[in-house]
């Protein structure tokens, strides 16, 4: 059972802690991954991964192509379920609840949003892109949808640029704007975690800078996991960095430590560019 530390040093189960006025989430990780193995058929893509993500924290995942970092974040909202023959062993806890247990996958994907490498707005208006998810959930009130769209676009630092053309096609936006629109679409679902899989690799440095600033803003409200090949992006925006290699999590450390004094020689070789 997950318990919550209280000031006295004693531990109480979350329900009792809540009854005593304690925040049951206090001190608890948002995500806890324990001894996770993942297989595509016979191929083991991830080996004994132990990972945790605190609330309001940005964790960056780095590592060479094929090391398992994208596979790992796809596990966190069960996107790999769509691939036949994939198999998961170990546990992935979201707020202490096993996401591969009884949790409804639609609910999971509402709580864990995803932004992909290439901006993928739907072929509809800017407004409809952001409103899409909540409409699907049955929200019909025009006023509430307008509020949602404005709030989400503002949060994604895009409102000022698009507020006068919400009816225009989303595909008319620039690449950087499209990516922020995808972030707004994700935010509109009021997720708790946002997974970002190389969200700036298709963007120019200005658009990249905006997304990075946005990540800094978003972490006030969300926990974020960012997969990136840009080592300095990991160094700039994350509090913790995980280095994956050949399906193993080699080192998960404070970003400052990992980039100045990594504990594992393989991490040092990789971040110094002496690995291949």
């Amino acid at each position: 059972m997950i318990s919550t530390e209280v000031l006295s040093g004693e531990t109480l189960p979350p329900q009792e802690a809540a009854a005593c006025g304690e925040n049951p989430d206090l001190g608890r990780n948002k995500v806890d991954v324990k001894d996770l193995d993942f297989f595509y058929g016979d191929f083991q893509a991830l080996k004994k991964i132990n990972f945790s993500l605190a609330r309001q924290e940005v964790s960056a995942l780095i590592g060479p192509s094929g090391c398992g970092k994208s596979t790992f974040i796809r596990i966190l909202n069960r996107m790999n379920d769509l691939i036949p023959s994939c198999r998961v062993r170990g546990s992935v806890l979201l707020d202490g609840e096993d996401i591969y247990g009884d949790m409804d996958v639609t609910e999971l994907r509402t709580r864990v949003g995803m932004v992909f490498q290439k901006p993928n707005p739907f072929n509809m208006s800017i407004f409809d892109n952001v409103a899409y998810g909540k409409r699907m959930q049955g929200l019909r009130s025009r006023r509430k949808l307008e509020e949602l769209v404005e709030k989400s676009l503002t949060r994604a630092a895009l409102w000022g640029e698009v507020k006068d053309r919400l009816k225009k096609p989303a595909l008319s936006l620039s690449g950087g704007q499209q990516q922020r629109l995808c972030i707004a679409r994700s935010i509109a679902m009021e997720p708790e975690i946002i997974l970002m899989d190389e969200p700036t690799s298709a963007l120019d440095p200005i658009a990249t800078g905006k997304i990075e600033e946005l990540i800094g803003e978003l972490k006030m409200d969300y926990s974020i996991i960012l997969v990136t090949h840009a080592m300095h992006q990991a160094a700039r925006v994350s509090g913790k960095t995980a280095f994956f290699l050949l399906g193993e999590l080699i080192e998960y450390n404070d970003t400052k430590t990992l980039f100045t004094n990594p504990e594992d020689k393989r991490t040092e070789d990789y971040i110094s560019g002496r690995f291949g």
């Binding site: 080592m231 160094a235 100045t260 990594p262 040092e268």
Partner: peptide, 9 residues
């Protein structure tokens, strides 16, 4: 070259 870790030190 954006050195890090030991290279940066």
């Amino acid at each position: 070259q954006q050195p890090v870790a030991r290279d940066l030190r």
